[in-house]
Simulated scan of single mutants.
Amino acid sequence: MNETNLFSPSEYTAALLLYLRKHPARVQSSRALEMGPGSGVIMATLLALGAQSALGIELEALAVQATQKLLDQEGLQANASLLQGDMWGVCGDARFDLVVTNLPQFAAEHIEGDGRLPTWSAGGPDGRRCVDQFLKGLSRHLAPGGLAVMTHNVFLDFAKTQLMADALGLQARVAYCASAPLPAYKLASMSAEVLARFTGLGIHKMGDFWFVDFDLVEVSWKHEDA
């Protein structure tokens, strides 16, 4: 599998891109961060829509290269920075006005058969491993008045995300909902407990085809005027 296919944007990435295009004022002049750029299309869109600066933090060296290649191709490298590292550990004390992410969040320890890197999609038995880490760090790096936008699979249990955000002084709300095909190789890797719990409640089957619902979730400060 070549580098282009390795980081091909998913339906989740496409949903984030649509969100950004529909809310350009939230991007313009922002200090933006993308956690896990992958192909680089979201980071490039942030800059194309007028972000003051955009930082991408990526665990995979190949993804850093893919993102840099796209930024160079589109002439958007001037206000861009890329760091290879594990999430917030490379951020220092930086704060951001806009944070965008499509984290690994599939309810599996490892996904066989997609040709992707081991860290690409699997989020542990309940899918929350990276999501919880992201939320904990977000409270230290989201600027006053800032906004984070994240993809959020239905089986992550939005109530858990709300409770965690609340404990950190943040608030989470669903901006809108979408659905994506659930390939057979992913279905085979999914936690049996999660599959049983959410079939018919966010995971749907029609004939031989499976689909999974997901949300775009906005996270912001609870008490901006405090």
Rank of each mutant, 00 (worst) to 15 (best):
Q28W: 09
Q28F: 11
S29D: 15
S30A: 15
R31S: 14
R31K: 14
A32E: 04
L33M: 04
E34K: 04
G38R: 04
S39Q: 07
S39A: 11
G40H: 01
G40V: 07
V41G: 02
I42S: 02
I42N: 09
T45I: 02
T45S: 12
L49A: 13
L49H: 11
L49R: 13
Q52V: 10
A54M: 09
A54D: 08
G56H: 08
G56T: 06
I57N: 00
I57P: 00
L59D: 03
L59W: 02
E60T: 06
A61G: 07
L62I: 04
Q65G: 07
L70V: 03
L71V: 07
L71T: 05
L71H: 08
L71K: 08
D72V: 09
G75M: 11
L76A: 05
L76H: 06
A78G: 08
A78I: 10
A78W: 07
A78M: 08
N79L: 11
N79I: 00
L82F: 01
L82P: 01
Q84A: 01
G85R: 00
D86Q: 10
G89R: 14
C91G: 03
C91M: 09
C91S: 12
G92N: 00
A94H: 12
A94G: 11
F96Q: 05
F96W: 10
D97Q: 07
V99M: 07
V100P: 00
T101K: 06
Q105R: 01
A107G: 08
H110Y: 15
H110V: 15
G113K: 14
D114A: 09
D114V: 11
R116D: 14
L117R: 11
P118T: 12
P118L: 11
T119D: 13
W120P: 01
A122Q: 10
G123N: 02
G123V: 03
